[in-house]
Simulated assay, not measured.
Amino acid sequence: MLRRLVKSLTNGHSHTGVTKDTLFDPIPADCDLKCHSCTIKYPASFKIEEDADLWQTSDGWATHILIATGKSDWVRNVDHEKGSIMEALSKAKKPTNGKLMVSASNMCPPPEYFTETPQPTTCIILPSWMQVENVTPNDVNELIDKFISPAPTTTTPMVSVAADDPPDEAVEIISKGANEIAPAPASPSTTATAPQKNSVGENGLVARKTDTRDSQGTNDDLSLTSAMSNLSVASRVTQNAAELAASSYLKSNECPHDYLILLCSHKHRDARCGQSAPLLLKELRRQLQPLGLYRDLDDYRPGGVGIYFINHVGGHKWSANMIIYRKKAGQGIWLARVKPNDIEAIVRWTVLDGKVQPEKIRAGFDRCKGLTSW
């Protein structure tokens, strides 16, 4: 009730202090963002709401699970599908690490999905990029306890540091909490001790220590201690998650793709989604194939872009909705009002470079910056 009241008073927008430009870098203003060779168009009847500001028009999430169903359209509410994992998750205990977004997808389930009861299928958990095999509705508590609740979330810190960074680099560590960046302390100019190596934690978490430390101690020491403490906690969480996953009877591995693009195709919720998703997929394939990045549903080669249809995500009046996950960058980017002639720019700038058209972004997170839109 309180949440709905706040959203009504703020026109549906939350206030985190994060702006479009601080969350994701904008595409350069002088770029031509339309694909002039694109011949694909939406039907003349395809009408959407064009005026409202899209920024922060969706709720946040901690983890996102994709469930293979082999279908591109579903009953109106997928958690009403009898005997499905979606139904089982809706009735199970909630994860302890925050809100779980559940999406049925057109990922290919194993053959047993169509012949056995209960139906074993494949799930991908994001942003941990963990793929869990042969999950049935009876396994949902195991899935939550061993793979979802312990997993890193959209607000779990992550930073990648180049291997050739100089050892005297100041500490550069992110996120004491959601929507905050811990500032890098300046290197003291006093007596130095021997250089210290980078401290590398699980899941790409890295702290860079300076080799110039005041022997008497400074405020920078406190910042370093605090930053290292945050890294240590995050590293332990990730290590515990790996240990729990390894102890499960469910088989798991890392999702092989470097990028995922999710397109709403839920025709039973909105006809425009059933129209837009196949057309956008066709243009995505045209743009990605020359780059060697396109992956079919049954193509599990390492790297590349996996593209899946998913059920209702909300905001269909702003179709088409597209959620992009970038593994190495630790980002999730939710776009709307996507048209076929936007795809060339989205592939070039958003998928590959993490830059966005500000007027198309609804929500997102960046674990390297320690920022979310919610």
Rank of each mutant, 00 (worst) to 15 (best):
L143K: 05
A163W: 13
E180W: 08
A194N: 09
A184I: 00
L100H: 03
C123Y: 02
W129K: 03
E142Y: 09
A184C: 01
H80M: 13
P95N: 04
S72V: 09
V135Q: 08
P195M: 12
P118L: 05
E81D: 12
A162M: 03
P183L: 00
P110G: 04
H80S: 12
V102T: 02
V159A: 10
N77K: 14
G98A: 03
L100P: 07
K146T: 15
N106A: 04
E116D: 12
A184Q: 03
K176H: 11
A184G: 06
S189G: 14
S175K: 04
A163G: 10
T69A: 03
P195Q: 09
A194C: 05
S175P: 09
E142C: 15
I174C: 13
I85W: 05
A68H: 02
K82T: 02
V171S: 12
W129A: 05
N97V: 00
I181L: 08
N97P: 00
V161M: 10
K91D: 02
S84W: 05
D59M: 14
N179K: 10
N179R: 11
V171D: 10
T153E: 10
D168L: 15
P127S: 02
K71E: 09
T115M: 11
M86C: 14
K94H: 10
E112D: 11
T191G: 10
V75P: 11
T63G: 02
I124Q: 05
L89V: 01
L66G: 00
V78W: 08
G177S: 15
S187E: 10
A163I: 14
S187K: 12
L143P: 02
M107N: 02
P157K: 06
Y113E: 05
I174L: 13
N179V: 03
I125M: 06
K94L: 06
